[in-house]
Design a protein around this nucleic acid. Sequence first.
DNA 1: CGTGCTTTTGAATAGTATCAAGGCCGGTGG
DNA 2: CCACCGGCCTTGATACTATTCAAAAGCACG
Lengths: 213, 213
Amino acid sequence: MDWIEKINNRKNSFQCKKGQPIFIEGSAVMGIYFIYQGKVKVTIRGANNKQQIVRLANNGHILGHRGFGNESYPVGAVAMEDSLICFIDNNTLNETFLANPEFTIGLMMFYSQELRKTEARIKYFSQMTAREKVIYALYYLMETYDLSAKKNILDIIISRQEIADIAGTTADQVSRTITDLKKEKVLNTDEKKIIILNSQKLREEVHAYFPLN
Amino acid sequence: MDWIEKINNRKNSFQCKKGQPIFIEGSAVMGIYFIYQGKVKVTIRGANNKQQIVRLANNGHILGHRGFGNESYPVGAVAMEDSLICFIDNNTLNETFLANPEFTIGLMMFYSQELRKTEARIKYFSQMTAREKVIYALYYLMETYDLSAKKNILDIIISRQEIADIAGTTADQVSRTITDLKKEKVLNTDEKKIIILNSQKLREEVHAYFPLN
DNA sequence: CGTGCTTTTGAATAGTATCAAGGCCGGTGG
DNA sequence: CCACCGGCCTTGATACTATTCAAAAGCACG
């Protein structure tokens, strides 16, 4: 995505430390954000403050776009590691839209794809078993935060509870499933990091839910 | 939504009978559709061809926008009653985007809101009980297809299975829940139509999942 | 007046969340 | 250096919920 370059002259970036919020659910929309460098989780609160991770974001990804056209952000964003964030205020954004229709179309295509992915996730949540949900969460982590080429290590430190918040289940179930997967030699853990031994097996188990291939 | 007027000069409409597909999941994207008059369900196939309704659409709503920027539609659309559909092909659409930036921005805002709604639904699916899911599905039906003013009748003929496909549960559970709600005097059924007796009660039960109020 | 489809209801089963206890590890303070 | 503490992870037992299967009733249709 080359949006960052297009708006680079107006950049207004800041540092965000691990665990620190970038913007808070329900707060007023000031503009949108891009991640220069870092890892961010986008969350939404449910009943009894149970939180659900609706998206994971990586370098170059956009944040806060759900607030566009609304007064407040429907979701919150929290840095999962020290991150460098670029902020673009509403005025700059609107100017860019009118001056550069192709930029607008590009952003619209991004929305279209996000919508597509999100609706696919609804299917997963309503039809998968707990085991499948956990596997899908791991698969999602693998896709978003590339495995380090050499050792298939998931390059992120993430708690069981956070995996559960992605999968839509409990930390207990995540732990059980990971234990099972270790016994089946599908993955291994080392110092809080997850090592994928058999990504093919993971793919097969959730494969039935994907459209086509 | 006044998009229809803006593109009215290029209109290309056709009739679609109940149960008939408007476009099919996985088929090539030709353009987008608007509903002049009718009721449409947007569905996505899951494992073992279990289908999930991701959205219900009514007069004036847009269809097929998920395909934008992709080769094939990720979802399918089927008429739930005889409907009049307006089709706009890709070329016309692209011309309109470049010629009319405000139209593009308007459509982008629509995407933003759809994304917002869809992500909220993920929360429902991962945290609600079966009873709550059914109530939410009824609530969704009420919001989308206005209750006929006089008698609080849901103006749509819909099977238990279809309600289950919205709620993400089974037809059995829908039947049980509806029976319970009848005993609780919350609703009643009459000749396949659902009559809401106590919409306040319905709202209260799913209320805890909504952001703010 | 059958035939087939949907709805309803019951019973058995499987799956999941919850609760509780124990283990592991890192940090803190004596 | 050791003891303690708190957080996170793991694992077992339990209770509950939901799905599945099966059967019967209702209904539309030819």
